[in-house]
Computed example of a mutant assay.
Amino acid sequence: MKNVIRAFGQLIASLFLFFLMGFTIAILLIQNSWLDMRFDSEYFVTISILTGAWFYFLRTFMSAKKLALWESAKATAAIVIASMAIIAFFTITKGSLAILPAYVVRKSLFLEGIFTLSEMNQILLVVIPVGIAIMVITLLKKRNPEMASDTGWNLLSRYQKFGMMFLYGFIALFLLIYLAQGEIQDSLSQSIQYLKDADVEGFRDYLLSFGSLAAVVSGLLMVFQSIIAPLPAFVITFANGLLFGWVGGAILSWSSAMAGAVLCFYLAKILGRPVVEKIVTKKALTWWDQFFDKYGKHAVFIARLVPIVSFDLVSYAAGVTSISFWQFFWATGLGQLPATLLYSYLGQNATSTVKILFFVFTIVIALAVLGMILRPKLQSWGKGKQGVKG
């Protein structure tokens, strides 16, 4: 029970310390009127709290001591004193002590429809002293001796550490921009809706709204869906064919999909198998291990030929196998080329029947690949049956 209470206290200390840092950054950025009109700086608090939770996870489960700022008395004291001084100075001198802190916290924690500014102020008057008290108590309490771990932070290579921090940084930056910039949030949400609805013409019109940047936006969305978003890439390919012609659309779709595949492959290499298991699940990765063992260097090529197989799942799985980058690169490039060319051509010439054509093509390719995989077994079964008759 004591260990549970101690762990909970450490969690609160980490979240509160990063809350103060995010709060301070938000207050400083709000002072710039130009930036404040175009960017909701309050969401730095949200991202900072998530960072505290991420660092707590690494400290607790991977013994990343250097990331545990809340365990250092000097770091904690410096952050608390500096943060409280900056927050007090700007809110008092601007005459907004009773408004600004409550407004920032309420918005960053999505509590605008729950608490009034007055109620939020009362909550802060309790939360801040309690948070500081918990940090002081956790500093006085020593952690239990470290347990040996096969996935400890110190056992990771420098590239694995960099990969984990880069991935989190990328996700945090994306969330910050998504939350804090209303136009980008609306635009991205609109694009995702078009992709989910398989609305090719709607997505084409959406790309057209970016003018000369249409190709750049299309490429970024293709990479985005390859890495973290399970969205139908074929809609982007169809729309590219419709907008840029089947040749230009195919080149854009193929190259951006390859960029996404390469990023997934190297992320898996850098992060290592334990982290990739968390992304794609251990069961799925085990199945892909067996698939790669059975078909070797042809496994990626076969998987790319079947449109219903998850593009990013194959890329992540390949990254933690013995397959070389160039084998992966050429197998991916050649394997996705037929579908890319066909989708681009259909996008230019047959948008009204996109869904039907896509599913027909998917079924035909799936049956062809299935036949190729089962052919040796069927042949051996047929020979065995003839031998029995003879």
Rank of each mutant, 00 (worst) to 15 (best):
T351C: 05
A261P: 02
L370E: 04
S48Y: 06
V360E: 13
Q327M: 12
L242C: 06
L139V: 11
G347C: 01
G182R: 09
G382H: 14
F301D: 08
L167Q: 11
K65H: 11
T332E: 02
Q386G: 09
Y194N: 10
V247R: 07
F174D: 06
M120H: 09
A26V: 03
R375Q: 05
G248C: 06
A77S: 12
L367A: 13
D150E: 14
K283D: 15
R158E: 15
L305R: 02
E277K: 15
A13H: 05
G260Y: 09
E201S: 08
L67C: 01
I81C: 12
A180D: 02
S315H: 13
F328W: 04
F358T: 08
S149W: 00
I302D: 00
W254Y: 04
Y159D: 14
L35Q: 05
I228A: 15
L195I: 04
S191G: 15
F19Y: 08
K74A: 10
L50V: 05
V104C: 07
L267T: 12
V300S: 03
M120G: 03
F39T: 13
R106G: 06
T237C: 02
F166V: 03
L334K: 08
L221D: 04
P101I: 07
L35M: 09
V369N: 07
Y43I: 02
V223Y: 02
T116L: 11
D150Q: 09
L28Q: 05
Y343A: 11
R304H: 11
K161A: 10
S380D: 11
M1W: 03
Q185I: 03
V126Y: 12
S187E: 03
P307N: 12
V235T: 14
R375I: 03
P338C: 07
A299H: 04
L357T: 06
L285R: 02
W254V: 00
Y168D: 05
L285S: 05
I251E: 01
A198S: 10
V388E: 11
L370R: 13
Y266A: 08
W246N: 04
I279M: 14
K107V: 08
V275C: 06
I30T: 11
V235W: 05
V4T: 15
L29N: 04
L252Q: 09
F234T: 07
K383R: 10
A250L: 01
S218H: 10
L221P: 02
V280Y: 01
L167V: 14
